[in-house]
Structures are given as structure tokens and as C-alpha cells.
């Protein structure tokens, strides 16, 4: 893996270890997950034990250590979405994509993720597909959405 982008990010943050969280966020912004090579590189360049960076990467929920699918299907799990049936949306995604929540399909096409609350409670329950908000969702609408995306990707 070409890690020059990591060096650029390090320079941007003046190699300040206090900016570790922001540095890791910038890396993820670039490649949508935190590649192991990048984490190891960080550890070496900043002289921070690998264990500490790994602890950060697993403590903060926004980091992903595995590559994510082309389509990230995020279900908002805020209180308003919960009482409006958000857990059933997750179950439906799990059924349709045959993966557990938090995982990615083997073809790297879909990931299921859960988020605490995005503050769009009036639209509950909410499914966010790559940043696009789908409001007032039902299990059935989730299925249709996934079918549509699969069709767009040609078959399957």
C-alpha cells in the first residue's frame, strides 16, 4: 500500500501526537477505513506504541479496521428511530444481505452499520445509504431499496 498520503496527513498536523485522533480520522476519510499498514506506519512515525493506536481505533466507534462496502447502509438507532421500529430495519438488512450488522458482504458491495443518532428525528426511522437519508422506513421499504441497489449493480 502506498502510504505517502499518510505522510501528507502527518505533515498537515505537524506530527503532533496530540492530534492522533484527527490524524486517524483524516486517514479514514481518505480510504474509508484504517488499513493496518497505515496504523503501523503511524506508530513508527510518531513513536507511539502500536497498542495505543489500536486501543484508540477500537475505542472510537467511527473507525473501521476492515474495508467497507461500496454502499454503507446505516440505520439510525436514536430513541425516536428505536420507538419507530429501527431494530426491525437492521434485521431486514441482515436478512437481505446475509451478513450481521457491522459487517460487509464478501463482494465488498454492502456494509450494515448502526449510528447512535444523527439528529433527524422527525424522519424516524431512518436509513442512510452513503449519506443519502431515507426517511420513515419500513422493513419492506428496506428490502426494496436493497433490491434496487443490487439491480443497479447488475444482477445478483
Amino acid at each position: 500500500m502506498d502510504l505517502t498520503f499518510v505522510d501528507a496527513i502527518l505533515t498537515k498536523h505537524n506530527r503532533d501526537t496530540r492530534s492522533l485522533l484527527a490524524i486517524m480520522q483524516d486517514i479514514q476519510e481518505e480510504v474509508r477505513y484504517l488499513p493496518k499498514e497505515a496504523v503501523q506506519h503511524l506508530s513508527k512515525e510518531l513513536s507511539i506504541p502500536l497498542s495505543r493506536i489500536y486501543a484508540m481505533a477500537t475505542f472510537y466507534n467511527s473507525f473501521h479496521l476492515e474495508p467497507r462496502g461500496k454502499y454503507t447502509c446505516t440505520v439510525c438507532m436514536g430513541t425516536a428511530c428505536h420507538v419507530a421500529g429501527a431494530p426491525r430495519l437492521v434485521e431486514q438488512l441482515e436478512r437481505d444481505l446475509k451478513i450481521d450488522s457491522g459487517k460487509t458482504t464478501p463482494d465488498l458491495m454492502f456494509s450494515i452499520e448502526e449510528v447512535n443518532c444523527v439528529g433527524a428525528c422527525a424522519l424516524a426511522p431512518l436509513l442512510i445509504v452513503n449519506g443519502e437519508y431515507n426517511s420513515n422506513m419500513t422493513s419492506d421499504a428496506v428490502s426494496r431499496k436493497i433490491k434496487k441497489l443490487k439491480k443497479e449493480e447488475g444482477g445478483a
Binding site: K36, S51, T58, F59, L65
Partner: peptide, 15 residues
Amino acid sequence: SFNARGDKRNVGGPY
């Protein structure tokens, strides 16, 4: 290090 958090917290080496 301590890894993950909450009820998933565990202790061990990286990865």
C-alpha cells in the same frame, strides 16, 4: 492495551 469499550472491552495486543 485495553481494546474496544463497554461490555466489549478486552485486554491484549494490537489486532
